[in-house]
Nucleic acid binder design. Structure first.
Lengths: 132, 132
DNA sequence: CTACGAGTTCAAGTCGACTTTAAGTCAAAG
DNA sequence: CTTTGACTTAAAGTCGACTTGAACTCGTAG
């Protein structure tokens, strides 16, 4: 297995800039790695860690929440429990956002059928007949 | 009808701070109103304009796009045509975001059933069995 | 020896939509 | 006359996730 990765190697694997890796270290999401001549050298454990980080990001977690995932629980708390707690919150958030997106879509469709002459009048009508 | 509104009146009607009104003027979304003793005085046309702005915002347009809506078309372009052009883009964006949200939800649910011991291993599994 | 590329640090910049702050003006009330 | 409250301006601050820039150090190639 690959050991002794330079920061640029790690960055390349995940398609991010080296500055992002340093940033993650700075905010405490990646542990400070060992150094060779002052330069960071990573072993492949960082790859797994970054995989979790990236997937969690795609899944909609902020970096703050991701830190919580790693360090916000008493040591020994099993991962499923950790994920579970954060997921609950997140899923609720997602549902909320979905609802708002759907509302937007309806509004946009309604506005597409609008036939008024003045923009301001137009907005007034939409506003007047809004769904709440 | 109400004329000669102070900035605080306008702000109160729309539930925003006066600073927001000045900001809209600054970025060219509201026209500079007349002044009385150096202070802004609005007539009610600003109310219609702001109604459009607010509704457009709720609907997911950025202020930049809203300016485009007002000023980005040859004079005389009817409102429906204006809305139509922007809506097309926006609806596409919305669909894209919806898809991503749904993906997130599936991922979260999958991770809830995860039973691994180490967070890193856990992420690895999710990553390895990701849907793309 | 010198240049090169890749690494380092710390501070500052970016984006969007505002807000906050500091310092000043004005009219009405006490 | 002084205070109060609402207004004015320009500039700086906020949030999140980074990026960019300046100035510096390394080991290696020519």
């Amino acid at each position: 297995m690959a050991e002794d990765l330079a920061i640029s190697d790690v960055a390349r694997v995940f398609g991010v800039r080296t500055s992002a890796i340093r940033y993650y270290e700075q905010i405490g999401i990646l542990p400070p790695p060992m150094r060779k001549n002052g330069q960071r050298r990573y072993d492949n454990s960082v790859l797994f860690r970054l995989a979790v980080v990236q997937r969690a990001q795609e899944t909609g977690f902020t970096l703050e929440e991701i830190r919580e995932l790693f360090f916000g629980f008493p040591p020994g708390t099993p991962p499923p429990k950790r994920w579970h707690k954060l997921s609950q919150r997140k899923i609720a958030e997602l549902r909320e956002r979905m609802k708002r997106l759907k509302l937007m879509e309806t509004l946009l469709k309604r506005v597409e059928n609008c036939r008024c002459d003045a923009l301001d009048e137009c907005g007034d009508k939409i506003l007047g007949h809004g769904s709440r």
